[in-house]
């Protein structure tokens, strides 16, 4: 809890500090915007305030500029995406990658939902098969019950129903 004595900001406070100034300007990465966009999506913003909750692309604050600048420089220097991501991991730690690789614990994040889906599909398959079997039986029973109805009459009803559909 902060209790303030003087709520009025000094002029120089606004002009000089409090995060308004960036450490470096970020110029338009004209070299390969699609690639820069991809990298900004796959690298998390390392600003301390963000607590690894935003990608660089979702982090417009000035504090992300050094990191964006590093990426722009490496793209300019001809580094591959993997080399850039490796550099980021070395410098900022494993949490900097927004998408863990397919191997290891990170990969489980991709496979567990697929596994969950397979379980669900298996469950649904069983459920629907059971319903279908019983449904077929119910239909057969109903047909047997109405066996005395003229087949032409049934065909006429089906035609009518189809026209309604």
């Amino acid at each position: 809890m902060g209790i303030n004595d003087d709520p009025t900001p000094a002029a120089e406070e606004l002009a000089a500090g409090h995060g308004i100034k960036a450490e470096r300007p970020l110029l338009t990465p004209v070299e390969d915007p699609a690639r820069i966009k991809w990298l900004h999506t796959h690298v998390m913003c390392a600003c301390p305030d963000e607590n690894w909750s935003r990608t660089l692309g979702n982090c417009p604050d000035g504090c992300a500029n050094p990191q964006k600048g590093e990426i722009a420089d490496m793209v300019y220097d001809g580094k591959t995406n993997d080399q850039i991501l490796d550099f980021m991991v070395k410098k900022y730690g494993t949490r900097v990658k927004s998408s863990p690789g397919l191997g290891g614990v990170g990969g489980l994040a991709f496979f567990l939902p697929v596994f969950a889906l397979l379980v669900m599909a298996w469950f649904a398959g069983g459920l629907v098969r059971g319903w279908k079997t019983q449904g077929d039986a119910a239909r057969a029973e109903r047909r047997a019950k109405h066996a005395d109805i003229d087949p032409e009459e049934i065909a006429r009803i089906e035609r009518d129903l189809e026209s309604l559909e």
């Binding site: 999506t41 796959h42 998390m44 690894w52 990608t55 979702n58 730690g93 494993t94 949490r95 900097v96 990658k97 927004s98 998408s99 863990p100 290891g104 614990v105 990170g106 994040a109 991709f110 939902p113 697929v114």
Partner: peptide, 16 residues
């Protein structure tokens, strides 16, 4: 459980 700090960002959500 695995002692590995990682982030699950939008690319993973989108892919899945």
């Amino acid at each position: 459980f695995f002692g590995q700090a990682l982030t699950i960002g939008p690319p993973v959500y989108n892919k899945v």
